[in-house]
Amino acid sequence: MRPDQYDEAADAAALRARLRHVYWIGGGSGAGKSTITRRIASRHGLHVYSTDETMADHAGRSTPADAPYLSRFMTMDMDERWVNRSPEIMLETFHWFRGEGFGLIVEDLLRLPAETGVVVEGFRLLPHLVKPLLAAQDHAVWLLPTPEFRRTAFDGRGWEIPRKTSNPELARHNLLERDRMFTDRLFEETKRLELPVIEVDTAMNEAELVGRVTRAFGL
């Protein structure tokens, strides 16, 4: 092993050690990540870090050089984003799905007090980016909703994005299809990396899901 490789390995080990108090809940949109995180954090005295709530801040801290997909996305109007492009292109070019800004999530987590455990949640927690940060495999889980569960979740809470376009029905279809493909990708990636998954379907209630995630974390 070359000296520079040793240094990289040592840095990775040091980073995992600094993040050993962090629990990660990733997954597809509409899986209930935010709700489950808040309940578990409240029950066990943990801090909550929502990656959804940091998106605007991270966009402001990013540059076109380190986030080119985000930079392009910001120039689009709502129809360009959600109506005029195919779900396949939307999937491949969506900046958060590309991992842009993930380093800022890590920066934020490293600034939090290590004395208190943290539950970080959001679809931005891509398996291949999270795995190198895990001091223990049972500190991460991905919630992957079935298409029926995701559709029911979105119908129940409404969806602002489609209503801001000229064709809400097509925008909604495109978003659901994009998110279905993203969830399929998460299934494949978590399986390949041997990371824990909980499939969320309409037969599962909130209390059951909280229990399963809690057991997965060994809390």
Rank of each mutant, 00 (worst) to 15 (best):
R178A: 11
L110K: 09
G103C: 03
E208Q: 11
K33D: 00
L134A: 03
A153R: 06
R111V: 12
R81I: 01
I105N: 14
A140F: 03
D155T: 05
G122C: 07
L219H: 10
D138Y: 10
L219N: 06
M74R: 10
W159L: 13
A207V: 10
A136Y: 11
L134T: 05
W82L: 12
G28H: 00
E194D: 15
R43L: 12
W142N: 00
V197E: 11
T165M: 01
I89L: 14
L129M: 08
T146N: 02
Y6N: 12
A203G: 12
S50H: 06
E80D: 12
G60I: 01
I40Q: 02
E208G: 04
P145L: 02
E206L: 10
Q137E: 15
G117R: 07
L193F: 04
G156R: 03
L15E: 04
H58A: 10
I161S: 09
W82N: 12
L70F: 07
I198M: 05
T165D: 03
E107K: 13
T63C: 01
D11T: 06
H95Y: 15
T93L: 11
G60A: 09
S62Y: 04
L91H: 11
Y6D: 14
D77M: 00
L170K: 10
S42T: 13
D179P: 06
L129Q: 11
A56D: 15
R163C: 08
A31G: 00
H95V: 02
L19N: 02
H139R: 14
P132Y: 06
W24P: 01
I36A: 01
L19A: 03
D4V: 10
F182C: 07
A135L: 04
S71E: 13
V48F: 01
R163K: 12
L170Y: 03
V119N: 07
V141N: 02
